[in-house]
Every structure is written in structure tokens, then in C-alpha cells.
């Protein structure tokens, strides 16, 4: 198995050098961009990266704007480095749809763990292609093709969002805790003040409400988690 190719985008040249050093030692192949423009050039086809890490706060084009430019044409998994002191709440508001979030400054070990979790999620090959199609409320979840159809029209979902809706539609009427969802969707453990799973659930909810505005399919159960309402 070849080393995964990671694109590291941060305006701090020295930091990217050190992190590249660290991550290379851990067996990853690292490319570095020190501005959003540089990153866009590197991401242009035919480039093939397995994952990108974007710093939110960069002079000129920010990490959030970069993500907007990249998506949805490029489905590359993205980890966002957010600033301390409330950035995560702002991102919750913007509903950007990165695959995971990590606050900066962070322990490089933590960054490595997140990168591996996302890669694991991406690389999990469907061992025996699951041909089941799960249906609720006119939604058809095709597990083998990893698509969600509403009345034969596919909904655009990121990989993490697809995992979220899969968890919900496979367990209708069951309260899923944030810890369990984080484990199953993001393939890592929930940490303190971790809102990443909430971002994903919120995005899925928003997309579902566009096609089924009259029905709130995913309910928040305070203090416990989330619940998908099954069809009676």
C-alpha cells in the first residue's frame, strides 16, 4: 500500500515544515502550500491527494473560502484547523462541511490521529458489497453505490454526511449518542468540546429539509443525542 498523499495548507512556513517533518516520519507523503492560491494550483487536476488539511486563518483567501472553491467539484476529504476561542461555533453557523475539525495550536499527535481516522474511513473497502436499499419517507439509501435518492433524484452528500444518514436510516427510532455517532461516522473518539459530529448532523438535517420541508426527520434528544424518526 502506497503512502497516503496529504496536502498541508497553512501560511506559517516554519510550522508547515515542522509538521511535514513529523508526518513524513509517521509514513505519510506530504505536500505543502503556504497560501490558498498555491493550494488551488496544487489541487487542480490531475493532482490526486488522499486528504487536505486547511488552516482557517490565512491572509488573503481564508481556509473557509478555499473549501468553498474546492467543493463540490472535488470530493477530497478535508480537515479544518480552527482558531481557539469560538471559531468552531462560527463554523457551525456557516455549515461548511469539512470532514473534521481540529483547533490550533494542537498536538501533532492529535492531528495525525485525525488524519488517520479520516483516511481509514475513506479507505474502508466495502468488504462484501452491501446491496441493500433502505427506504424511509421516499428516501432511498443505496449502500453499495453510497448514494441517497429522493424520488429518484440523488442528493449531494459528502462522505461523512453519507455515513451520518446511513447510521440514522439503519437505526430508525433509536437515539444515537454523540459518542457513538463520532465513533461510527468519523472513526475516532469523541473529545471534550467536540462539535464536529453536530456540524455533520446539522448539514444532513438541512439537506433533508430541502426535499422534505414538512417533516423534521432528525430530532435532537437533549442530553442524549439524535434520533431519526422512522416511517410508521
Amino acid at each position: 500500500m502506497t503512502a497516503s498523499h496529504i496536502l498541508l495548507v497553512d501560511d506559517d512556513v516554519e510550522l508547515t515544515e515542522l509538521l511535514a517533518d513529523y508526518l513524513t516520519t509517521e509514513g505519510l507523503e506530504i505536500s505543502v502550500a503556504n497560501s490558498a492560491e498555491q493550494a488551488l494550483a496544487l489541487l487542480a487536476p490531475p493532482a490526486r491527494f488522499d486528504l487536505a488539511v486547511f488552516d482557517i486563518m490565512m491572509p488573503g483567501m481564508s481556509g473557509l473560502e478555499l473549501l468553498q472553491q474546492v467543493r463540490p467539484s472535488n470530493p477530497i476529504p478535508v480537515i479544518m484547523l480552527t482558531g481557539k476561542g469560538g471559531d468552531i461555533d462560527r463554523i457551525l453557523g456557516l455549515e461548511m462541511g469539512a470532514d473534521d475539525y481540529l483547533s490550533k495550536p494542537c498536538n501533532p499527535r492529535e492531528l495525525l490521529a485525525r488524519i488517520r481516522a479520516v483516511l481509514r474511513r475513506m479507505q474502508t473497502p466495502p468488504s462484501a458489497p452491501d446491496t441493500r436499499v433502505i427506504q424511509h419517507w421516499g428516501l432511498a439509501l443505496q449502500l453499495a453505490k453510497r448514494t441517497l435518492l429522493f424520488r429518484d433524484t440523488p442528493l449531494e452528500l459528502t462522505s461523512a454526511e453519507f455515513n451520518v444518514i446511513t447510521q440514522f436510516m439503519q437505526n430508525p427510532g433509536v437515539v444515537l449518542s454523540k459518542a457513538k455517532l463520532t465513533e461510527r461516522v468519523l472513526h475516532r473518539e469523541l473529545t471534550a468540546y467536540d462539535r464536529a459530529i453536530d456540524v455533520h448532523v446539522s448539514r444532513v438535517r438541512q439537506k433533508l429539509s430541502k426535499v422534505l420541508p414538512e417533516q423534521e426527520l432528525i430530532k435532537t434528544v437533549r442530553g442524549e443525542g439524535y434520533l431519526f424518526i422512522g416511517e410508521e
Binding site: 506559517d12 510550522l15 517533518d21 513529523y22 516520519t25 498536538n107 501533532p108
Partner: peptide, 21 residues
């Protein structure tokens, strides 16, 4: 302070790789 702190943490990660966690 955050920029040098982030770098310092990266350095500490490199040190950890050499000295063991």
C-alpha cells in the same frame, strides 16, 4: 503567541518521535 506555540508543539511532536512518548 499562537504561531510560535503551534511551532513549539510541532517541535515537541518531533522530539516525542525521537525520545518516545
Amino acid at each position: 503567541l499562537r504561531a510560535p506555540l503551534a511551532r513549539l508543539q510541532a517541535v515537541s511532536g518531533l522530539l516525542e518521535q525521537r525520545l518516545g512518548s
